[in-house]
Amino acid sequence: MKRVNHVMKRVLRGAVVAIAAMTIAEASLSFAQESVAVKATIVTGGLPVDDPNAAIWSSAMPATFPMSPQVHWPNRIQEVTVQDVSVRALHDGNQVAFLLEYKDPSEDLDDAAAFEFMVGDKKAHFAHGQPMLQVEGGPVNIWFWKHKDDKAVDMTAKGFGTLKPQTHQDVKAKGAYANGGWKIVFSRTLSTDHPEEDVQIIPGEFISIAFAVWDGRKDAVGELVEKGSQKAVSSWWYFRADAPPDYSSYMYAAIAAVVALGFQFVLIRKLKKGQ
């Protein structure tokens, strides 16, 4: 009997270890799948909207996204310079600022980069919100920066050939090149007066975001290699501006615990009376 008990204990211990291992493996897997979103951390006392090198950027977690040559429609490109972009974001409840960073071996006047957002509730195709055949899509808002002008152009598109600058320019941008890489700050107010054209950023809500980069290098005959639709692109990922801390869940939890306690009390009293 003792022997049987001993075996049982060993089996149980083994099972506990196995379950713990599986739980840990599952937890680490869900962690590894996570880098799919840029999050804007809340800061007070001003955003570094003009300074890609501001120290405060280090307080925002960078998110890295892989890039591909644009192959969805002609003109395509088979190879691009930029393989990954790293993105950070900060907001102060009024404005949001993004820091886009990527490696680029040469500083060229035609170097350019862009952010793309879905606008409104309808899904938009990541290639400039082009029409889908079975789903009604929405427009995209594109924030475009070019080294030559070092400013942002706030644009709208809904399909191939529809990209155009908006009449209301709400976005600012500033780039800085150093050590073989670009750092570009894009900033805007969280909300604007043009919700049909501009992405509206509501703290706590996830918004679809995508990126594009053009390396402005030229080939042997002086032609731009990356231009127009020949660029590095990303798929849709997520962006979220952090919501202010919300403690209401603690209150709901306390109420639920008190109700459960009361339920126990009443139940036991009834049972005792019943006997």
Partner: peptide, 20 residues
């Protein structure tokens, strides 16, 4: 039991960090 109920309530009302 009340603590578990409280914890469950917290878990279902606290805003999630996970994308949709």
């Amino acid at each position: 039991f009340p603590l578990l109920i409280g914890w469950q309530t917290y878990g279902s009302t606290a805003s999630s960090d996970a994308p949709p």
